[in-house]
Design a protein around this nucleic acid. Structure first.
Lengths: 309, 309
DNA sequence: GCGCTCGATAGAGGTTTTCAATCGAGAGAT
DNA sequence: ATCTCTCGATTGAAAACCTCTATCGAGCGC
């Protein structure tokens, strides 16, 4: 039964019988038969039949919802029993927004010291995708903005507030400043993330609040690419302080704090709000709580973050 | 997998392989093998082995906890899909404390009018047993005192406050009174419930609060038996008003309100606090909310009850 | 030590599951 | 219109699994 529910999860994710079967490690006829059997035992069509995959029926959508619960509980149970025997083992799949990638190591490094048998897979994607993947059990945790429209039921552990810095070369127009305003930032040629990234949308909002229209002359979805363009001296960019810190300041690149309307966006760990949590998830949450104390720029900020939980 | 989890549930309930197997509708070797397979897939012993059933291992207890979740979610899923097709159908198992049996019909009657395809099984048992059975998925809902030590996670819907009346014959010492005090009640020969019933323990407390020691000359676990003894004219008894109302006042039996310290005990519906609820449970909760309005003795009381949720 | 209860084990029989191979319907291209 | 390609359903054989009856063996009480 549970394996059949996994078939349904895979199908709704892949939207293709063959790929779903492959993802489950069975052949396509097996998956087809499994779903047909699930439909028989529940007494309702779950998959809209056609020459190709069309979608799930309303009943299918409801079953999908239950399947997520049941499958994730089953996995959590398995994991907990393994953890009871051999200590914390297993695999944590984490997705993070690109601007948070730099600080992931402050989470993973102490975690591995504490639990050496846990392996990680960390992927970079948009805040929207993180919530979608959490919902579909494709990742175990995400690191993203906490002021998102709540898409699914998630538990959030605040980590730090994102503050922005202008990345530029010392010999460019603003290169010698100790701090700059958002209005000033808009006056230099900028390279920024693409607008599908929430970070870019936040920066756009901040620039508009300063009365200017964002007009980057180069867009990319890779922070590394932006950074390398800044190094040429022909572009400047805007980056969260935590990330600029990680990339390291060479003698050709300066990071200048941007002052002005301080609409700080909190970044934190998000995990499925299932009670009780997976033992791995629980350990990660504990680690995040510890990391939050280290990452906070001031005791004040620490207090504010704690209030967000 | 799920059927194996059901085996574990049955075993922990019956504490006997043969009876557990019977409860699951399989033979004892099948249940034994199923549990052994569950142990193999989880990689841990779940049942303490001995010549007879000893108990579950710590791992077994943890798995049992998950099994309850997974099995109940699976049942809820099945039910919801059936409900989507054929409207609300199925079976509701309710347990109630004896003193609440009289008012169950104010819940079930309108429920059946609304959902004619739902059948009921209503059993009478102690408040402790109700919570235990709820925990073990043996009943779907209970009707009991709401001031219990919370044994499991339950959601409670208040129905009414229990108030006590003296049941007696018109020609007995207190038979002509409009109301009596707890101290007066203690002066007549009483027949009461046995002390394993919470109702009796409450009455004992009330009698002691009035400075008297409860000394019933007859005890039983059946309200009907108590009532029939009252009718002989040789005993009086103490009953919740709601129940006295249901049993009906013949011309040989009077119900006299007992005044004094008003430590009202709220009675209500309790259901497993699983999110989302079974469709049947959700419908029952809705019915209980409606019934609470009807049962309340005053608007004041209605307000107090609402606050308990 | 005898008998009884309980749970484990063995082996047969039947069902279910799985897979490779193939079919057939529909979409898109020519 | 027809060809072709993709996708999901179907088929049939082999393997795996599950469930049963029958029986065993350990421990408990007498």
């Amino acid at each position: 039964m549970i394996d059949k529910l996994e078939y349904l999860l895979a199908l709704s994710r892949e939207r293709h019988f063959g790929r779903a079967a492959e993802a489950c490690g069975v052949t396509q006829p097996t998956l087809s038969a499994g779903l047909k059997q699930l439909e028989a035992t529940l007494g309702a069509l779950l998959v809209q039949r056609g020459s190709r995959f069309v979608g799930l029926t309303p009943e299918g959508v409801r079953v999908l919802d239950w399947a997520r619960r049941i499958v994730s509980d089953t996995r959590a149970m398995r994991q907990e029993i393994v953890a009871l025997k051999r200590g914390l083992t297993g695999h944590l799949r984490i997705a993070a927004i690109p601007t948070a990638l730099g600080m992931v190591s402050t989470l993973t490094t102490p975690f591995r010291t504490r639990h050496p048998d846990v392996t990680f897979k960390i992927s970079s994607c948009t805040s929207i995708a993180i919530l979608a993947q959490l919902e579909n059990l494709e990742i175990d945790a995400g690191i993203t903005y906490l002021d998102n429209e709540p898409v699914g039921r998630v538990r959030q552990i605040p980590l730090y507030y994102e503050r922005y810095q202008l990345l530029t070369t010392p010999d460019s127009p603003l290169g010698d400043r100790a701090e700059v305003t958002w209005a000033e930032v808009a006056s230099v040629p900028l390279c920024l993330l693409t607008p599908d990234m929430q970070n870019r949308r936040i920066i756009d909002r901040l620039l508009r609040a300063a009365g200017t229209e964002p007009a980057p002359t180069l867009e990319s979805n890779s922070m590394i690419l932006l950074f390398s363009h800044v190094r040429t001296g022909r572009w400047s960019s805007i980056m969260p302080a935590k990330l600029a810190q990680t990339l390291g300041l060479t003698n050709t690149v300066r990071a200048i704090p941007i002052v002005g309307p301080d609409t700080a966006h909190a970044v934190g760990l998000v995990v499925p709000s299932r009670e009780p949590m997976t033992s791995l998830t629980a350990a990660l949450v504990a680690e995040a709580r510890r990391a939050a104390n280290e990452l906070a720029d001031s005791p004040d900020e620490r207090e504010n973050l704690r209030a967000l939980q």
